[in-house]
Design a binder for these strands. Sequence first.
DNA 1: CTTGCAATTGATAATCACTATCAGTATCAA
DNA 2: TTGATACTGATAGTGATTATCAATTGCAAG
Lengths: 171, 171
Amino acid sequence: MLNTDKNIQITLPIHQTSETIKKNERFQIDDFKKMIRSMGLKITDQRLLIMQCLHDGDKKSGDRHVTAQELYEKVSVKDSSVGFATVYRFLRDLAAHELVTEVRMGGQASRYELTPKEHHDHLTCTKCGKICEFENQKIEDLQAEVARHYGFQLTGHVLELFGICPNCQKS
Amino acid sequence: MLNTDKNIQITLPIHQTSETIKKNERFQIDDFKKMIRSMGLKITDQRLLIMQCLHDGDKKSGDRHVTAQELYEKVSVKDSSVGFATVYRFLRDLAAHELVTEVRMGGQASRYELTPKEHHDHLTCTKCGKICEFENQKIEDLQAEVARHYGFQLTGHVLELFGICPNCQKS
DNA sequence: CTTGCAATTGATAATCACTATCAGTATCAA
DNA sequence: TTGATACTGATAGTGATTATCAATTGCAAG
């Protein structure tokens, strides 16, 4: 059986004080509820938990881009009764409403992240894997122009620059 | 049984004169053989046929970006004994050696094209999978500027625009 | 040319990511 | 509280791609 709203904090790491937890989590949960409602969906414990896991991301690696499977596993740790169909379904809904951003790269499964408030692209070092996020309005404008030229209604883009970072250029 | 090297031109469109065919095809075949050898693979009739079909592309739509299935069907028309495993396998080898470029996007199957000499980016329809190629020097310049700004030595990039094509906007 | 053997092939089964189905369950407006 | 309706989890199904393996073939060495 799932936790109800008022005791969802028991799924959080033990070392945090319950004070901190309540304050932080309460804020996020309300936020999540708004997002779910904005899609015209009902609020369920499963969906809140999925959003929480999406939001937390992979704390170890610091990577917010998660596959559906990985997300399902994260969710399972906190509540093993949640089925993966629910995770996939909800992720699809979130992506359709652009509340999460889907990135699919050759061969691999799709990766998802909560759509960041400010858009950014990536500049990745091919040696050390370091990622710089950047934002360039001129490039965005030109992209829109290109799409318009071909009569496309632009819905998204992937811009990844690859290079050698300053550090790796030395060695 | 597969055609041998010396009569492979029988698979070409009938309306071309055999003179034209021999000249054009001879050139391409030698070219293809070089590419296959450069990967350290053996030259087989199947592989030559696959490359030929890849090169010819979809003459009707003018789209060179083909899925593995579509390519398999093209190949099958010319020689129905070629298995689809062979097509997939060879396509994977070609992609690994960057002789073909793979474009994969949300939900749909991968599309492949012989890696073009001149660089271009893609504008992909998320509904039907149609791909438009474009080239925009201003965007390239801005990318270089961004990289310079972060002290990166730029080595490559991926720019994929996603949207709804004019056709799919109607329905 | 033969020949030998490793590379290649095609058929098939398996896998992988994802989706549809459906009976049971939970949400929430009234 | 309640009932229509949305949601859920289990399961089976799909479509693209990959692994397996016995039979075949390319090609280099003789």
